[in-house]
Design a protein around this nucleic acid. Structure first.
Lengths: 150, 150
DNA sequence: TATTGTTATACTCTATAACTATA
DNA sequence: TATAGTTATAGAGTATAACAATA
């Protein structure tokens, strides 16, 4: 028995991230930045420091490489990223963020990280407790801190 | 400050429900049942008892009514549901599950409710604690039970 | 006149297959 | 011969607008 509590908890986890307001957020955010949801998602996967091969981006977005071609085309048209040759393998093209792309990417990530309002109902203790439990579920070991009392 | 813990917790909530294995589940499940992801989602929104007006289904799926027309067309072709007239308002058509549709819908719901493996790492106490915290976030009042000790 | 559902149509998202350049 | 990316194309998924029936 997966325990009734686990089933219910899983239901609430889905309810939180499938909340219409949350789903709309990605769309609205992209529009506010003058781009598309797919490009916004791609930006969130690109690091400002490390240029990323097209194929790797396809993996991160879980889509075909042919689609990445058109997504990156869009990013170049909007001045958010550019293609550059790979230093050693000339078959590979890497995608690197422009300055503007890095700014937009940072805003996108910050906005997506913003917890929905319900989290404000949690006190600091509850928030830490929730985090600890979710870490158990996800399998992330707790980082090595002296959990500060309360 | 939304508290670092809340931000982290929210990140993990998203990680759980956007897990590739979970995302693939809906798709694979639909295929196994010989139907499409969209129809599977529609089935999950239909109750076996209460027939549902097309327009209401559009709301539940958050799509246009014109699209509901084609989704319900598909469900009828597959013998999963049928249209029936509304008892009092002849403009309205309600969608009702066939026997087979009700069976498939039940299997779809059961499969989607299955928590991902990480939840098995939780003991019964942890599962209940997680559930209680998520209820605070979602705003659902705790149901009126004498929480049975540990 | 307002509302429900349908039709016709078009646009976005994404994949498959064939191709080019490089390894 | 195998791999990275591109092109051309086709298919899902979904919306918009005009329409018919009913309220």
């Amino acid at each position: 028995m997966a325990t009734q509590a686990a089933v219910e908890a899983w239901r609430l986890v889905r309810a939180l991230s499938h909340d219409p307001a949350v789903l709309r957020r990605g769309h609205d955010l992209a529009e506010a930045e003058g781009t598309t949801p797919t490009i916004a998602k791609a930006l969130a996967h690109l690091s400002p420091e490390r240029p990323v091969p097209m194929r790797e981006l396809a993996g991160a977005l879980r889509c075909d490489t042919s689609y990445v071609t058109s997504v990156v085309d869009g990013m170049e048209e909007q001045g958010l990223a550019r293609r550059a040759p790979h230093p050693t393998d000339r078959r590979i093209k890497v995608v690197e963020l422009t300055d503007r792309g890095a700014e937009v990417a940072a805003r996108v990530r910050a906005a997506l990280d913003q917890p929905p309002p319900g989290f404000a109902a949690l006190g600091a203790d509850d928030a830490r407790a929730l985090l600890a439990l979710l870490r158990k579920v996800v399998g992330t070991p707790e980082p090595n801190v002296q959990h500060p009392g309360a």
